[in-house]
Design a protein around this nucleic acid. Sequence first.
DNA 1: CATTTCACATGACAGTTGTCATGTCAATTC
DNA 2: GAATTGACATGACAACTGTCATGTGAAATG
Lengths: 195, 195
Amino acid sequence: MKRAEQKAATRAMILDLAARRLREEGLAGNAVHRLMRDCGLTHGGFYVHFPSKDALDVAALEQAMAEHGSRDAALPPGLPTAERRKQRARRYLSRAHRDDSANGCPLAALLSEVAHAGSDLRETFQHLLAGIVTDTGDAEGPSPPSEELALAALAMGGLALARAVPDAALSDAILSACRDATATLADAYAAQKEV
Amino acid sequence: MKRAEQKAATRAMILDLAARRLREEGLAGNAVHRLMRDCGLTHGGFYVHFPSKDALDVAALEQAMAEHGSRDAALPPGLPTAERRKQRARRYLSRAHRDDSANGCPLAALLSEVAHAGSDLRETFQHLLAGIVTDTGDAEGPSPPSEELALAALAMGGLALARAVPDAALSDAILSACRDATATLADAYAAQKEV
DNA sequence: CATTTCACATGACAGTTGTCATGTCAATTC
DNA sequence: GAATTGACATGACAACTGTCATGTGAAATG
């Protein structure tokens, strides 16, 4: 069984690096040749593990989301919805997350790029987004609750914007503004529900 | 003077197409060869008009923003801030804007991509963003008001997300959710100011 | 009308992209 | 121990990237 072990390990190495690159440099950063070279391999062996570049992109996006999701999960349970939403935003819209895109949320990293990508990747993107906006809300509706959709757009938009801007002070101001706005929205949503 | 006229016309044609492509397909869509070919020219003549591809990207971004800004401008004057913000969001987060990215806001189109771009382009991006968030607010502060920053992040994030997702119903839901959230935020900001 | 200028074309360059056919050598199987 | 499998290497392919050197023909200038 040493054979299958080796193959799995190699595949994991490729996928891990691809998942990191995808978030650091976007879709363009994941060239097959460079990816394999940086794994200590040559490009030819790539197709032993993945049928195509597009298939790698999909797998890397899923892998990236799995990594990010697991590190993001540990919020204390039993919190009221509004408070949980604020705490989530505090992490998501932090300087740490902005500066460590390699281990961050891949949806924010690909936010504008995925619109021009192949349909497989877009399907995957949507699926992962749906996972976020449904399982973090309290109620389990059939369609994603509009409150969560808006909060997701604010969070991803704010993070992407903070990464786009070169001036550090402005970047910080964007993060802070979006955190505040999330709190305002969360409170407003909670107030609506009490009526 | 027919000479300079010709050159200006050709340059404008290249720049117009580049500005459209930039928004339709992102930075990767603006290949020199394809761009010139689709203008009825050959790639060699490109460097008569622009010193480099990067310089074109910068010029195209500015051009795109100028086009979009002029079509966006016509809001009735004298409106209260909250109302103006809601109306702006109603246009920005419309299906029409989502489906016509070629003539839409370039900042949303490049939202996640610009983080990996050259510093010239990022500088330009920041400058154009600053133009939006300062001149549409009522007060003229030295640094961009945090309210406008959050609203911008919500608007661009929502638009990018709506374009990313393949399912039309979910895409519509995202737009609608972000419009509602903008209204909620605008009202909350107005209420804060009355204290 | 002769000369100069210059917008653009042609063609090349070195590097990149994704993809595959073939070769090789070690692990597995019989 | 012989035969087979399969993970990966080598090298090629066509198409693509940005960039530039040179050629050309027409407009501008004297």
